[in-house]
Amino acid sequence: MAELTLVQEHPVSATARGSSLRRLARTDAFFHGLTRAAALAVLGVLMGVILALVIGAWPALSHFGFSFLVSQSWNPVTEKFGALAPIFGTIITSAIAMLFAVPIGIGVAIFLTEICPPLLRRPVGIAIELLAGIPSIIYGIWGLFVLAPLLQRTIQPFLIDLFGNVPLLSSLFAGPPYGIGVLTASIVLAIMILPFITSITRDVFEQVPPMLKEAAFGLGCTTREVIRKVVIPYTRVGVTGGCMLALGRALGETMAVTFVIGNAHKINASLLAPGTTISATIANEFTEAVGDLYTSALIALGLLLFVITFIVLAIARVMLARVARKAGK
């Protein structure tokens, strides 16, 4: 109504107002389009990465075909490239890292949510999260100069002595203690992914309704029983999602592993032997790769890594989204 009176009393300013409104609408449409374009650019980055890697990897993939995935040979001189050793190394280091990091990470989360005195909760939580902030190159240099010599002197000879005469296990710990190798890389990876597991596990633990826990305590359960019978079943999906996210990180981690894995294109049963991973191979060899086929084989490795991590991270995100929806309701 007010607008109507305005129009009748000041016809001139009404046209001015109309045009300025149209201008504002145009600016708004422009801003809408701009933000939409930026959002689509995020999708564009993903498409671009996949497209660029497929194009770059095509010469190697078409040349070697399926044997690229199952061949162990990696010979730049004869230009025979197979990805089996890096794939094996990536999977085995990540698996061992998860073996260490999942129980410890969940243990820290349990400590923070159930046991820790409230006064210490914040500082301890922040300290663990700082682990996630340390750049991976720092883990690499620390792993190479501190952890590897330490393992070489203490734990590795111990493991060799302990399992040396046990059938099956002896081959896992065969060979001289180099210090660097698959086991060292796995331990460094475990330290790096620990904070991711802890932070997500803690968040989902805190979503458990207090009534459920109190009811269990009221029935006489101990803290351990409450966690195992109430908290963990309630948060299973979220904890698994957090672990998958950490696995995605471990699979793609580059610099820390490059420092300590030893970079040997060999599949060795021994965890003490040097090996390689997909990302370490790329980091070490890409700038020195001569010949299109060599470069293309390395890009094919990158594509493979991207596909693997994409699948793992997608599963993680779907699981965590399910948890978030549940918490939202």
Partner: peptide, 22 residues
């Protein structure tokens, strides 16, 4: 976009290097 962005958030950074190289 949210789904893709969350994946890019933890995607291996070495792949980004390869992409920009290409």
């Amino acid at each position: 976009v949210r789904f893709v962005n969350d994946i890019l958030l933890s995607a291996p950074s070495i792949v980004v290097g390869l992409f920009v190289y290409e």
